[in-house]
Design a protein around this nucleic acid. Structure first.
Lengths: 406, 406
DNA sequence: CTGTTAGCGCCTTCAA
DNA sequence: TTGAAGGCGCTAACAG
């Protein structure tokens, strides 16, 4: 009973096209398009008729075709380092919640990079292919020069094509220097055209200019990691701690660096002596953000200084691992050793003992990032917003035990 | 100095098209396409020349255009109930890992439905628009008739357009009955065709047949929830527990129902008496899957029976909340009350005390779902795979205290 | 192996 | 308010 493509009834799994709806409704394709996109006046009667046809036929817009014709897409990418980590879940959820609603809502899709910058690049390419409206990159990132540069290049190119870029939880991108072409470029012709022309007008005839000149509008929502870390360490030193073990993220990552800086800020402020940084170095161990890493990292710290009285973990999850390790060594928390983390995940308050931690405003950050990605919020001054972090003091930190011969 | 679109040099942030690459490389667009898609023989020399041009120009395929022309897409949707829950993170991560690699890799995008079936429908539409290659729906779902039907309809329609559907963590879809049209349908004509025909062949000539006839190939990877729940309760009864509080998921959800069934299976097996189900009913409290719900649900259970000796939670997170509640009531775990959960998240082993739980093979399920979604694995018999669950006994369960007058 | 030629399904000027 | 016509950028037959 399959009527031809233009029959009144459309049958079977075959695709229903806009034209089918038009025929069914007895109008032109243009009208259907206008009804569907609602950005053009259409008579109420016609409107309803078209809508009913859409219903009857079960028509669903062909996204790619629409995107091609309108050169726009309703895709929004969210890149996360670890989708199994509630930190990113909360962040991504907030972005999705913000961007998935309203008339200009987008399909927020989250992509798991597993912390690998290469995967980040891959996904960026994929999203570029799709001509995503915006991309939100969350969490810390590498500081390795090559990768960082590659990423920056990619991002600027993306931004230049009109994709809005929002970084969330990492520092602003270094300013673009377009003094060199990509590797492999020019290799064939041997010609060099490195001149940049008409920088003001924003348009020139030179080669490969994908920078968009003056700020392409890559926005950043960062956390005050350094400040938070400083406060946390201060809290511990205020309590009287001197031997503070510091578990910190993988080396060469922005978050790690920022927090270590804050840690040292606090330490040097308390001990303005000749070599204040020697101690923190010895008592710093790199660990990943999972529980096991927290566990083993803590054991390593104890090996380095069996008398330490506090452990700072890179996040709450690792902090719980640290607690486990300490307990396994027969140490009580916080009686013998204090423990603190970062993030303030919902479960941290319920942990045993309730965790002292530095709260990162995850939901707020995600929401803001989403708003910026959609252009719902104005560009902040300096294209960067730094969200404050807050020290949440709970039962896992206390004054160190009196210095006896433990 | 902007050369025309076909000039050798392409300028500025403007889009670089396939044709530009072709011109630059001195070949035809078709050749470039062939090189890029690698599914057609091209001379090595030409290949390299083209590739270099791609590099030089920084060309990135226009996904929508490609999708339109090839009527295919490299998008794969993963729907999750709560992106902040590691349960889903692990699952989605596994899907992404599996599907993001290889020559036929896809852009796996995860969409957060927040457990609302309406959001699920929305995302389904969005993915339909994009003509996603496949959709993986994870976690339990509603049993409410209207929504379930709407979902089924949607899924069948999607499947009929060639999108592969894989359900993961929920029971198979009810068989499609096409005895009724979509709401709003026929409203105009007043005709009713409620006959269902050729039920065996699954094929009829009636209207709007979007089912794809015999199984459109909606695949299912489910967990043996019921069995797992039964084993867990048996474990508790074996230990001697009689008053077992059961926190279970929200009412009207597949997971909840399946697990309650298992729970009752075990109970009735032990007490084949006249009214074995009376007790489980009274000691069953619906709770969400978060820590707070576990906490409050446990308080409610204690209110109903202050002498209960065990609490089953709907997942590990809620179980930790249950632990907190019990402790706050001065009860020791497992000395006074045993606690158990579901999932076996990585952190459960590290919890205090280490949690007895029913392990769901999350990674395995995600990987399999991914493989099925890509057609990398053959369709299983019955289009359904049920993955076994395993009881992991740890320190949070123990025999109940001797029955004194607590 | 490579070029030429049609569309893919929709949006968007233009003209009516 | 509506219709007609062209093109978005790419792929997939077909020739050569």
């Amino acid at each position: 009973m399959t009527t031809a493509r233009n029959g009144t009834r459309h049958t079977g799994p075959g695709p229903v096209r806009l034209a089918d709806v038009a025929t069914h409704a007895g109008v032109s394709p243009a009208t259907v398009s206008r009804v569907l996109n609602g950005n053009y006046p259409v008579a109420e009667t016609t409107r309803h008729r078209v809508l009913r046809s859409v219903q009857d036929l079960g028509y669903v817009t062909h996204g790619p075709a629409a995107a091609l014709a309108a050169s726009s897409s309703d895709l929004l990418g969210v890149l996360v380092n670890d989708i199994a980590d509630p930190f990113f879940g909360l962040l991504a959820g907030a972005v999705q919640q913000e961007t998935g609603t309203g008339p200009d809502r987008k399909l927020a899709v989250v992509c798991n990079t597993a912390g690998a910058p290469e995967r980040e690049l891959e996904y960026l390419t994929l999203l570029h292919r799709q001509r995503a409206t915006a991309v939100v990159l969350t969490g810390g990132t590498t500081e390795a020069d090559t990768l960082r540069t590659a990423l920056a290049t990619h991002l600027h190119r993306l931004a230049a094509t009109g994709t809005r870029i929002v970084q969330c939880g990492r520092p602003p991108l270094p300013p673009e220097h377009d003094d060199d072409d990509r590797p492999g470029n020019n290799a064939r012709t041997g010609t060099d055209h490195h001149h940049r022309s008409h920088p003001g007008t924003g348009h020139d005839g030179t080669s490969h200019d994908r920078t968009g000149h003056d700020g392409t509008g890559i926005l950043t929502v960062d956390f005050a990691h350094r400040n938070g870390a400083r406060r946390l360490t201060e809290h511990l030193t205020d309590l009287g701690h001197r031997r503070i073990g510091c578990l910190t993220g993988p080396p060469g990552r922005t978050t790690t660096t920022q927090r270590l800086a804050g840690h040292r800020d606090a330490l040097t402020a308390r001990h303005p002596g000749p070599d204040p940084a020697a101690d923190p170095g010895r008592l710093t161990v790199h660990a990943a953000y999972d529980r096991t890493s927290g566990y083993h990292g803590t054991l390593e710290l104890l090996r380095r200084d069996p008398h330490l009285t506090a452990v700072i973990a890179p996040n709450d999850t690792a902090a719980l691992g640290a607690c486990a390790a300490l307990r396994d060594q027969g140490l009580r928390i916080p009686h013998d050793v204090s423990v603190a983390g970062f993030d303030d995940l919902p479960c941290s308050a319920d942990a045993w003992p309730p965790l002292t931690t530095v709260r990162l405003p995850l939901t707020e950050a995600g929401t803001l990032a989403g708003r910026l990605a959609l252009g719902r919020s104005p560009t902040p001054p300096g294209a960067t917003v730094t969200l404050p972090t807050r020290l949440i003091v709970r039962a896992s930190t206390a004054p160190p035990p009196p210095a006896h011969d433990r």
